[in-house]
Amino acid sequence: MTERKITVAVSGLNNTDNPGPGIPVIRGLREAASLDVRIIGIAYENLEPGAYMQELVDKVYLVPYPSQGTDLMMGRLLDIHSREKIDVLIPNFDAELLPLIKSADWLRNEGIHTFLPTMEQYEERLKSNLPEYGRNYGIMVPASRPVSSPSESLNACREMEGPFMVKGKFYDAYLAHGPEQVVEYFYKISAKWGLPVIIQQYIHGTEVNVVALGDGKGNTVGAVPMKKQYITDKGKAWGGIAISDPYLLELTRHLLSATKWRGGMELELIKTHDRKYYLVEINPRIPAWVYLAVGAGQNLPEALVHLALGLDFKPFDAFEVGKMFIRYSYDMIVDAERHQNFTMKGDM
């Protein structure tokens, strides 16, 4: 246990059917034997469920979306910091990662520690750069192309075999069986997440993911592969099992070593029936299913806080294969007054 209480600010409290990683990260921190934490929740919406989970979050603040301006967001963070003295910030919302990576030095000067990838690491694994990433690191990647107009979408469809995955630059992915559907989803995704939209060849197979933490020096602090067992209509895992697949672990160590990855990471792959692996996405943060890793013996959020504070953390060398997570929904009863005060005051 650390000598003093560590104040950790955590975002991604949107425990919806497209859940953010905030609450699982907080659960990991609360259970960490080596930490005594005070949790500050960072919410972008006044109905993010995690904001109302008093047993997990000590205080919550509303923050403007990064799209409303980085200055506005950073100003609010500084305001929260002046009240709460944040030691570590764990951002879990994709759209906030880039401005926070850019501001990592400034944040550190203010006393807020993060443990994020570098700008180069962040950009190298962007969905639009994935084919080149695959070539550079010797991993198979489905044919894909970033597009910025409906006509480009149609051209992309001619260049690869269908069906297609149509993906937003941060979130959302839809399976399209033909070019007409691709254009339909292009409009839907670009209206929500902006451009480019990524058209990717659909690969048939089993969805397997890895949650990992790199120390920024080429070492893997921890890694747990998972097979999705129950998938929602949004493509999110609602149930999964920790697996021992040696290829996935070897691939993770290879990537973290070759890129000197710093921070949390999620690898998303498709394993075909003839045992070929296609990398379909890399998320530069801890995923929402990270609590499976905690349950399987690797408390990656705990390790991340240690690394952010510059403390040593012995890398994990094992985890319990066969541990499963089964997600569920749960109705909280909240007084309207609490919700109203949160909306008006911006904190709770």
Binding site: T206, K227, Q229, I243, S244, D245, V321, G322
Partner: peptide, 8 residues
């Protein structure tokens, strides 16, 4: 029950 830990 037979369980394959590699594939789950």
């Amino acid at each position: 029950t037979l369980f394959d830990p590699e594939t789950g």
